[in-house]
Write a protein that binds this DNA or RNA. Sequence first.
RNA 1: GGAGCCGUGGUGUAGCCUGGUUAACACGCCGGCCUGUCAAGCCGGAGAUCGCGGGUUCAAAUCCCGUCGGUUCCGCCA
Length: 591
Amino acid sequence: MTQHGWNKRTHYCGDLRAADAGREVVLNGWVQRRRDHGGLIFLDLRDRAGIAQVVFNPQISPEAHAAAEDIRGEFVLAVEGTVGRRPEVAVNPNLGTGEVEVTARSVQVVSTSKTPPFEVKDGVKVDESLRLRYRYLDLRRPEMAGNFVMRAAVSKAVRDFLDAEGFLEIETPMLTKSTPEGARDFVVPARLQPGHFFALPQSPQLFKQILMVAGFDRYYQIVRCFRDEDLRADRQPEFTQIDLEMSFIESEDIIGLMERMFTKVFAGALGVELELPFPRLTHKEAMSLYGTDRPDLRYGMAFLEFTDVFGSSGFELFKKVAQEGGVVRGFKVQGLTNPTRKQLEALVDKAKELGASGLVWMVGEEGNGLRSPISKFLGPAEMHPISERARFWPGEVLLLAAGSQAEVNELLAGLRAHCIEEFSPEPEECFAFAWVMDFPLFDWDEEEKRLKSNHHPFTSPDPESIPLLEEKPLEALSDSYDLVLNGVEIGGGSIRIHDRELQQRIFNLLGLDPEESREKFGFLLEAFEYGPPPHGGIAFGLDRLVMLMAGRATIRDTIAFPKTQTASDLMAGAPDTISAAQLKELRLRLS
RNA sequence: GGAGCCGUGGUGUAGCCUGGUUAACACGCCGGCCUGUCAAGCCGGAGAUCGCGGGUUCAAAUCCCGUCGGUUCCGCCA
C-alpha cells in the first residue's frame, strides 16, 4: 500500500506466465474489457507490457465481485489476487498471458474513466483527427505503444553503439541563426533585440562541423530538427535525426561504421540479422536502372536499355526518339503473366495518367515470339535482341517507353511503383538497404537560373570531379552517400570541404561572392580559418527508420504527438494566437 | 499554391448517382438474465435536425456554390 492509499504493482500484467502460478500478485492497469457472466466476472487488465485476465468469483471474494460489477472500460485498477493456471479448456492461445489468470481477492478503483470517444483496441479504424485529439487514448492501444517501445530500443541501440565507438553526445542550440539555402525556417522573435529573430535549426549541420574544428573528432546527437515546409505522410515540421560527424576519415569509414550500426540496431530492436555489406549503386545507376534516386530493392523490375535496338527499326516513333538523342527503355513486369487485354489497357491508361503520350507493351509467346501492337513494324533484327535482353518466358510482359532520359525515367519509375502495388504482394518483414553514392554536386535551378547545391554547399566534390568544376559543373559528382531502405530515403551525408580555396570555388559557382558567403555562413567560414580537420558525417531520419521497422505507413505513428497536415496539434491546440501583451513585449504588430 | 478522397448517433459504415415513409446496419453505451468467457451469449433500451453557411426546389443527408476539418499526392522539402 502506498502513502496515497493505492496498492502498488508487484508484476506487469503482460509479464505473467505459467511459471508464476501460485504467486500472490498486485496488478495496476487499465480495464480493456469486462465480461460479466452474472456469477463470474472476467476483466482484461492492460498495462504497458500486455493484458492479463482477472477473474472475480463471488465464492472467493464477494466484496471484489460486487465491486467489479460497477467497473467499466478504461478504469484504473489495483487488483490483488493469486495467479493460477487456467483450466485446460479456457487457455487462450492468442494472449501471451493466456495460460494463466489472476483470481481477485480485492480490487481498488484507483480512478474512473468516461466512456472513451473510440474503442481503445488494436485494429480499429478511427478518424485520424479524433485519434490526434485524444492522443493519450490512441497511444494506449498496444499497436501504437509498441511503436514507441521500438523507437526507444532503436535510440538505445544507436547510443550504445556510438558510445562504444568513441562518439561524444553533444547538444547544439535550438535557438540559432537563419541560414539561406534549404528549407524555410521556423522563426522565433528575440525579445531582448527587437526586430531580430532566431531560427530553429533545420539540422545541426554547421554546428557539428564546428565541433570537428573544435577537435571533438567524433560527435553524435539524437536531435530535433525543424523545417517549415508542407507536410507528407513521411514529413513533419519537427522530426528527429540521428546526426553524427567524424574527423580524419573518408566515406568508406562512415559507410562501414553505419552498416555495423544498423546491424546492431536491427538485432537489438527487431531481432533481425542484416546481411553486410549493403548493396551500392551510383546515383547514375539508380536513375538508369530504377528511374529514382531511392530505389526499392525489395523488387526487381530493373530497367532495360533498348535505344540501340530501335535506332534503325521500322517503328518510326521510337526510331525518331532514338535518333534525336532520346532513349527507349522498359522493364519486365513482375507478378503479371498472360495478361488480359483489359490489364494491358489499364497499364497504358496508367502511363497516360502519369503524363506519357503512350506506352508499348510486349508479351512473350511460346517459341521466342513476341506479341505487341508494334510487332508488325519489327523484324528479326529487333525482335531477337529484345527477347534476348528481356529473357522472356511465355506470357511475361515488357513495358517500353520512349522520350528524353528524364521523361522515360520518371514514367517508368511511376509504372514500376504501380506494378509493385498492383501485382507484387508486400513481402513480410523484408529490409532492403541500398547506398546511393556519387550524387551530382549541383542541380540547375531553372527558376533562378543558377547552380544549386544538391546536398549543401559544404559537400566535397569527388576528387576526380574537381577538374570539372568550372568547365562542366553539372557533371561534377560529390563525395556523398544516401542510405535507402525499402524505397524510403532514411539518411544521407557526405565528406565536407575543409580546404578554403576549394570552398571558395564552390561558392563562386553557386554565385556567392566572398562577402555574401561571409554574411550567410560567416561563423563556419571563420572557424575554418583556424585549422579545420578533414571531416564528414551523416544523418538519419529516426521517425522514418522506426516507421519502416514497425511496418507503419506514416511517421505520425512513430511520433508521440505529431501534427496534422496543416501543422496543428489537435490535442494541445497549437498553434494559437498570443495576447496583445505578449505581442507588445516582443514589439510585434500583426498586419 | 494546385489536384484527388473523406466528413451521417460515441465509433465505423450504408443511404447520396436517380430529391419525397419513422435515416439502416455493426460495434460501443445503458438496463436485465447468465459460473469459464476472452470479438462472451440472450432479451430490452437510449442515442444522429446527416461538418458548417448559403442557394435551387412544394420538398435536400441526397443537387449546386462557398467554407471548415482530416487525409493522400504534385509543387515545396534532403
